[in-house]
Amino acid sequence: MQLIKISSLILLSIFFVFLGGIILDGNESESVISGKPFPVFQQKTLDGKDISNKYFSDKTVLVNIWASWCITCLVEHPFLESLAEDINIVGVNYKDDPKNASDWLTKHGNFFTVNIHDPQGNLAIDLGVTGAPESFLVVNGKIVSHIIGEMNQRKWEQHFAPNL
């Protein structure tokens, strides 16, 4: 009985240490990809055209990983819309059903220059994406900045605007 009591306390401690590890880990893994060229890929857009990494070679674009099942994407949507006046935004539709994705765009507004369809998350893996939403700043085919989670004024000013 005493053993069970003590081991349950130890288990609880391990759980907290594990959570602590996640916090520290999340901090380290950020923006490992910054400074590297945009990964080589060959994929379809949401409206069925071919697209490859050559698309990025001569442009400054914001690449946004999104999905129709992601609520945070809905939250950052208005802010991205306001950014779309000044910068081209390329969407990567991540692990999504094309029908749901285009319905979502009709509903909430489509300001994306183009949307890369990434149903298996292949491109996302190459980009080191951990989930939706995430955003990358790509200048002439090179990844300059990367943020995880909702894009907002503060993150834009802190991580993206200085690199434009």
């Binding site: 996640i22 916090i23 609520i71 945070t72 809905l74 939250v75 989930g131 939403p133 989670g149 909702e150």
Partner: peptide, 10 residues
């Protein structure tokens, strides 16, 4: 408040 989960409220 720790930001380990992505959410509307985070």
């Amino acid at each position: 408040r720790s930001g380990i989960i992505d959410s509307v409220h985070a």
